[in-house]
Nucleic acid binder design. Structure first.
Length: 520
RNA sequence: GUCCCCGUAGUUCAACGGAUAGAACGGAGGUUUCCUAAACCUUAGAUGUGGGUUCGAUUCCCGCCGGGGACACCA
């Protein structure tokens, strides 16, 4: 029909023209034209069996490599030092990790970078607090909450404003004592972050925080002023975009009138480093939707600087609480991410213990299920949608949830455990007969076309929905087609379907950053 | 005021411009001497509103209504 449109033909006539020149007799039954100009192909069972044998033997499970591999940098997560990670970080962290995994699998050269917020005016207050009010026992036990307490104490006390400013100036000037306090803050926070990333199974190739670019800011601004990319306006160094209607009245400020540098300055230095030093030609910023204007500005600025790379902001919506407001604790604080993850694991553990009390490795299973449920709830829907966080929904273990998919995998593993060692089905032709077998095989073929689609618009939910349909097709097959009790080519076919399903589920969930337990 | 995002069953979410708008939860009904019933099967129920483009619009364009967000010296 697309062809008919471009040629201004009647869609049904175009379809007839295609069929007249098409020879697919060895693949399917004679095609039929239906509706407005659709062509229906009915695959022949022998073709399906041949095709399945090929796909089932493919280590990539039918997923093609990218025709044009890129050198991609994925910027995601980026929490702030001296603050606990909270629910606000979970979407970006999970989404960025999944997109990086998918890009790698498709053959792109991927570098992940955690651009932590380790520099800024808040350190004046924190250092001031550390010098005068610190509780060493609390710092030793759990430093980040103590840093938060100190920041709040100083922040709420107007008599300490000047002292905080002085500490900040000393830090920026390289004062050794303040520098040492700052270093410790970074270390403390990094440990707290690593604990959470370990729970989530997320890792980064680089941790180049904002402070990494400090020395680059002044030369960068000077250079941009000299080259005319930037100009002074009302005392501040700005980049203007007169040719861009969206940015005509939104210049990008890169130096304040007091000489200080800004968020945008660091980000520009970061882009330059990523392109020139890390040799990236495509930058992905997985950052919340509210920052869309900011990225539009710095990308336009980078273009004016002539940096040879494409940069894409991949925005996402918010997580809301049951009251449809931004998710907070009862006292109005951000929900610490660690608490959230531990609660997910606890809930999963209780359910596993109730359902299946004799399992070994219960801790690992609880982690795979609890964390998997949280990740799947995020990744199974469109990233721009604001969504309501609900334990009961994501851990109900019914319907379109991670445990449902994991359960399909577990059932397959169970079959293979029961298959005695010498009793493998052996090589030979496959034989398809039951509708449930056809349906499952056809679903398996679709994996190869589904995975690359994710990157069209950065939508892991396409893969999540596919995996759900695959698990659904498997469960139906499992009900209708006994595997171990069948014989000969039938048994061989069913075992191969099980094996291929397990591998696609494991790979597909793995691309989403979700683990599959062997039992549950 | 300008710009961006979102409006789909009671609820939470899907649908490169394609066929009868898919699921899940919740509702109603059914399935287990059989590989994990965390499952399967059946069933009722929805595109905010008005135009336009198209053979065809949830999707693209314009207006309106409703919700959220961003808009020079914070990050």
């Amino acid at each position: 029909m697309l062809l008919a449109k471009s040629r201004r033909e009647n869609p049904r006539q175009a379809a007839a023209g295609i069929l007249a020149r098409l020879d697919v007799a060895d693949i399917c039954e004679p095609p039929e034209i239906a509706g407005a100009g659709f062509i229906n192909f009915r695959l022949r069972p022998d073709f399906l069996a041949r095709q399945f044998a090929e796909t089932a033997g493919d280590p990539r499970l039918g997923v093609p490599l990218a025709a044009r591999p890129r050198r991609i940098l994925v910027d995601f997560s980026s929490p702030n030092i001296a603050k606990p990670m909270h629910v606000g970080h979970i979407r970006g962290t999970i989404l960025g990790d999944a997109l990086a995994r998918v890009a790698r699998f498709l053959g792109h050269d991927v570098v992940t970078d955690n651009h932590v917020g380790d520099w800024g005016t808040q350190f004046g207050k924190i250092i001031c607090g550390l010098k005068h009010f610190r509780d060493d026992a609390a710092l030793a036990a759990d430093p980040v909450p103590e840093l938060v307490r100190l920041y709040r104490k100083v922040d709420g006390d107007e008599t300490l404003l000047q002292a905080s400013r002085d500490e900040l100036v000393k830090l920026q000037g390289g004062d050794p004592e303040n520098r040492e306090w700052w270093n410790r803050c970074v270390e403390w926070s990094r440990h707290a972050f690593e604990e959470i990333y370990a729970l989530l199974g997320v890792s980064f190739d680089r941790w180049l925080g904002e402070s990494f670019y400090n020395d680059a800011l002044r030369p960068l601004v000077d250079r941009l002023l000299r080259s005319g990319v930037a100009e002074i306006s009302e005392g501040a160094a700005c980049i203007f975009f007169p040719d861009d209607p969206a940015l005509r009245e939104a210049p990008c400020l890169i130096r304040k009138s007091d000489g200080g540098y800004l968020y945008a300055t660091t980000d520009l230095a970061t882009i330059e480093y990523r392109v020139r030093e890390l040799n990236r030609d495509l930058l992905w910023y997985v950052v919340g939707a509210p920052q869309q204007l900011h990225f539009k500005q710095i990308f336009a600025a980078a273009a004016k600087m002539g940096l040879p790379a494409a940069a894409i902001h991949i925005p996402f919506g918010s997580i809301l609480g049951e009251n449809r407001k931004l998710m907070k604790t009862r006292s109005g604080e951000n929900v610490p991410l660690r608490d959230l993850l531990m609660e997910g694991i606890d809930r999963a553990r209780r359910i596993v213990e109730e359902k299946n009390p004799d399992l070994p490795e219960r801790e690992e299973i609880a982690r795979a299920i609890g964390i998997g449920a949280i990740k799947y709830a995020e990744l199974s829907q469109y990233r721009m949608t604001d969504y309501i966080f609900s334990w009961d929904k994501m851990l109900s273990f019914q319907g379109n949830t991670a445990p449902y998919l994991q359960n399909a995998y577990v059932r397959i593993r169970s079959i293979f455990r029961k298959l005695e060692a010498g009793a493998q089905a052996g090589a030979g032709e496959f034989a398809f007969a039951e509708p449930a077998e056809f349906a499952l095989a056809k679903k398996l073929f679709q994996f190869g076309e589904t995975v690359p689609q994710i990157l069209n618009d950065f939508r892991p939910n396409i893969l999540a929905n596919y995996l759900y349909e695959l698990a659904n097709a498997f469960h139906a097959f499992y009900e209708a087609c006994p595997v171990l009790k069948s014989e000969g080519a039938i048994r061989r076919t069913r075992l191969a379907l099980c094996d291929a399903t397990a591998r696609v589920l494991e790979k597909g969930l793995g691309l989403l950053g979700i683990e599959v337990p062997a039992r549950m």
